[in-house]
Simulated assay, not measured.
Amino acid sequence: MNCWVVIPIKAPEWCKTRLAPVLGDRERRKLVADMLAQTVSAAQSIVGLQRVLLLGPSRHDLPGDIPLLPDAGQGLNVALEGARNAAIGAGVRRLLIVSADLPLIKADDVAALLNLPGESVAIAPDHAGTGTNAVSLPLPSAAKFAFHYGDGSFAAHRAEAGRLGLPFLSLRRRGLELDVDRPEELAFWRQSQAH
């Protein structure tokens, strides 16, 4: 299947600032780089090197052969619309948007986002069930899908699939649920790694 996995990522100095109370700048950048590398590796093992693209201003020291989509600095939702439009222009049939901060993501999580029936939209919620950690869109059917990242994004994305008349699936998987944004999530992840 002709697909793209797009991984949005901020500039290094703006990543994970909510972790500043518990991590210094160097530790924070290493954590971001490690989680991004994990996500890229999981995706590349399923879709190949050239179908995994970063969306943002920096590759975070990842190899230069990873395509980098531009971010005009108008916010994540606008940047994702640009990525969606670029994917449609490239003839992509399924577009995956996967968060860069999923330390438990594995190749089979990416495969689950791809192996969907027909024109289904799938959303992988965060552990609280309110945020969105991954989106899988059929193209061109979802060409008008509006992104709603921010508070309550899971419900907003589910409603968007309904607005377009596309079947919706909630994809709850351990590797897609835990995103590390806040100190308590970092502590939970570290504790789970210790067992």
Rank of each mutant, 00 (worst) to 15 (best):
C3R: 08
V6H: 03
P8A: 09
W14Y: 15
C15P: 00
T17K: 12
T17H: 09
R18Q: 14
A20M: 10
P21T: 03
V22G: 04
L23C: 06
G24L: 06
E27K: 11
R29D: 10
R29Y: 03
R29W: 06
D34H: 09
M35W: 07
L36P: 04
A37K: 05
V40N: 01
Q44M: 12
V47W: 05
L49H: 15
L55C: 06
G56Y: 07
P57Y: 04
S58G: 05
R59V: 02
H60A: 05
D61T: 12
L62M: 05
G64Y: 07
P67T: 02
L69C: 06
L69E: 03
D71F: 04
N77A: 06
L80T: 08
E81T: 14
G82Y: 05
R84V: 06
R84W: 01
A86M: 10
A86S: 12
A87I: 06
G89V: 03
A90W: 05
V92I: 15
V92N: 04
V98S: 03
V98Y: 02
V98M: 03
V98P: 00
V98G: 02
S99A: 14
S99R: 07
A100M: 09
L102S: 02
L104V: 03
I105N: 01
D109F: 01
V110T: 01
V110I: 15
V110Q: 00
L113R: 00
L114P: 01
L116V: 09
E119A: 14
V121N: 01
I123A: 12
G129I: 10
G129Y: 07
T130G: 12
G131A: 13
N133R: 13
A134P: 04
L137K: 02
S141A: 15
K144F: 10
A146L: 13
A146D: 11
S153V: 10
S153F: 08
A156Q: 14
A159I: 06
A159M: 12
A159D: 15
A159V: 08
E160I: 05
A161P: 03
G162F: 07
R163D: 08
L164V: 07
L164C: 10
G165T: 05
L166T: 08
L166M: 10
P167N: 08
P167L: 09
L169S: 12
S170I: 13
S170L: 13
L171A: 07
R172N: 12
R172E: 11
G175M: 00
E177V: 04
L178N: 03
V180Y: 01
D181N: 13
P183Q: 05
W189Y: 13
R190D: 10
S192Q: 14
H195T: 15
H195E: 15
H195K: 12
